[in-house]
Amino acid sequence: MDTRMPFLLGGTLPVRRLGFGTGGLVGPGYWGPRHEDPERSVALLRRAVERGVTLIDTADNYGPDVAEELVARALHPYPDGLVIATKGGVVRTGPDVWHIAGRPEQLRAMCDASLRRLRTDTIDLYQLHRLDPDVPMADQLGALRELQQAGKIRHIGLDSISAAELARARELAPIASVQNRYNLLDRASEEVLKLCERTGTAFLPWFPLGNGSLTGGGAADGSADPAAATLTAIAATHDATPGQIALAWLLHHSPALLPTPGTGSPAHLDENLAAAHICLTDEEFARLDALAAGSA
């Protein structure tokens, strides 16, 4: 598989499969900015695009508002071919404190606010950050369909859903993407991924590096970690890092996977993007594929 081949998001927007997520540009608990000097984040976003990234993934509650404002500050007017994805449907009130807000009037207001912060008339991919259990799915997706028909949204995505929910949602609206937690050692959403493959739906895995657990090192108690040992050994043969191998595995595992790892470091950005050029052998892929059984 040529992991550098683009993915056609929503059937209309070609994007490179390794994108950039903006969660790393905000502070702990997704609260406030990460850097005191916003120009550091601005420079990082511009570097990502200069390095060939064509998919930027953000959310209105990162900061809140901070990440979207940084995207606009750094990249507006947006170059041709750059796809901006954002999320709504969650209200953040403090570090790691948030609640779901999926009533149609809330979603409409959130989308309008994102449009203003991103300085655009149309959001390429607007993702419902969580399904609201207190609001019928038809009402939530109906609001997004109205926004789509009004030209404010180009494509609709969903976050943290089951395969059954995705199948039902597809009966109510065209779904271009899914964002679920998924990585080398966490494959609970494999059924969702398979449905995405069958339907041409993009799967943007969040925590693609296990929130840092797949970037190297051993277990928390200092004992040997079989997964870390395997990653380290394979990385050594490619003159790479364990994190690069974990990203390369995602790109090889399924053509529907579009990882968007985030970082606040230029060096780490370059390291992540270089993973797209790693070609795993069949034997290496099989060794990595087998790790999930041992992590269950």
Rank of each mutant, 00 (worst) to 15 (best):
G10E: 07
G10I: 07
G11Y: 02
T12Q: 14
L13V: 03
F20A: 05
G21C: 09
T22V: 02
G23R: 04
G23I: 08
G23H: 00
W31L: 05
P33S: 03
H35R: 08
D37M: 05
P38H: 04
E39A: 04
E39K: 02
R46K: 12
V49R: 11
G52A: 05
I56K: 00
G63P: 02
P64A: 01
V66I: 05
E68I: 02
E68C: 00
L70P: 06
L70A: 01
A74D: 03
L75H: 02
D80T: 09
L82Y: 10
A85N: 15
G94P: 03
G94Q: 01
P95F: 07
V97M: 07
H99Q: 12
H99L: 07
I100E: 08
A101C: 05
G102A: 10
E105M: 10
Q106N: 03
L107T: 08
L107W: 04
C111V: 14
D112P: 00
S114V: 11
S114H: 05
L115M: 06
L115P: 03
R116W: 00
R116G: 06
R116Q: 12
D121H: 10
D124A: 14
Q127V: 08
Q127Y: 03
R130W: 14
P133L: 06
V135G: 08
V135F: 08
A138R: 15
A138T: 14
D139R: 13
A143E: 14
A143D: 09
L144W: 08
L144T: 06
L147W: 06
A150N: 11
K152S: 11
R154Y: 02
G157R: 10
D159I: 05
S160Q: 13
S160K: 07
S160I: 12
A163L: 05
L166A: 09
L166I: 09
L166K: 03
A167W: 01
A167S: 11
A169T: 04
A169Q: 06
A169M: 02
R170N: 03
I175Q: 13
A176P: 02
A176D: 13
A176T: 11
N180R: 10
L184F: 12
L185E: 06
L185V: 14
S189Y: 12
K194V: 11
R198F: 00
F207S: 14
L209G: 05
L209Q: 04
T215S: 10
G217P: 08
G217V: 12
A219C: 04
A219Q: 06
A220T: 15
G222N: 09
S223L: 14
A224P: 12
A224L: 14
T232V: 12
I234Y: 07
I234N: 04
T241Y: 08
P242M: 03
G243V: 03
H252R: 04
H253L: 08
L258E: 00
P261F: 00
P266H: 07
A267S: 14
E271P: 01
T281C: 01
E283R: 13
E284K: 02
F285S: 08
F285T: 08
D289V: 01
A290G: 11
A292F: 01
A293R: 07
